[in-house]
Amino acid sequence: MTTEDVLLTADADGVRTLTLNRPKAYNSLTVELKERLLAALREAAADPAVRAVVLTGAGKAFCAGQDLKEHVGLLQAGDPSPLSTVADHYNPIVRAIVDMPKPVVAAVNGPAAGAGAAFAYASDLRISAQSANFLMAFANVGLGPDSGASWTLQRLVGLGRAAELMMLARTVDAEEAQRIGLVGEVVPDEELAARAQAVAKKLAAGPTVSYAKIKEVLGTAAESSLEEALAAEDAAQTVLGGTADHREAVEAFVAKRKPEFQGK
Rank of each mutant, 00 (worst) to 15 (best):
G110V: 00
R51L: 01
N109L: 02
A61Y: 08
A118H: 04
A52Q: 08
S123R: 09
L135H: 13
A77M: 08
H246I: 08
E185C: 14
R195H: 02
K213Y: 15
A12Q: 14
F253M: 12
A52G: 09
A204S: 05
P101Q: 05
A255D: 10
A236K: 05
T19N: 01
P92M: 11
T171A: 13
A115N: 07
P92E: 10
S224E: 05
R36A: 12
V54Y: 04
R36V: 03
G73L: 05
L153D: 07
R36E: 12
A106L: 03
L33D: 04
C63K: 01
G110I: 00
V250D: 05
P48C: 05
M1S: 14
L230Q: 15
A61E: 01
A44Q: 07
P82M: 09
F253I: 05
V157L: 07
L68S: 12
L192H: 01
K258E: 07
A193M: 08
A115D: 03
V254S: 07
R257A: 07
R161Q: 15
A194M: 03
V53A: 06
I214D: 12
V187Q: 08
D124Q: 01
N21T: 01
W151M: 09
R126D: 05
G78D: 11
Q262H: 10
M136A: 15
E223R: 15
V15H: 08
A139Y: 10
T9R: 15
L203T: 00
E175Y: 00
A249Q: 09
L68N: 13
E70M: 02
P48N: 06
A115T: 13
G219P: 02
K34T: 13
A221Y: 05
G14P: 00
T152K: 08
T208A: 02
G110T: 00
A10D: 13
V94Y: 11
A162W: 04
L68K: 13
E32P: 12
A117S: 10
V94E: 12
A120Q: 08
K213C: 07
A10G: 10
S81P: 08
K215I: 02
G14A: 02
L165Y: 14
A118D: 06
H89M: 09
A174P: 07
V50Q: 10
L83E: 11
P207V: 04
P188F: 14
G219K: 06
E248C: 03
A236I: 04
G148K: 08
A231P: 14
G219F: 06
F119T: 12
V250C: 12
A196M: 05
R247L: 04
A255H: 04
T19D: 03
T220H: 09
A64R: 09
V72T: 14
G57F: 13
A45H: 03
E216S: 12
L37K: 00
G57A: 03
A212W: 11
A87V: 13
A163P: 02
E260Q: 14
D124Y: 03
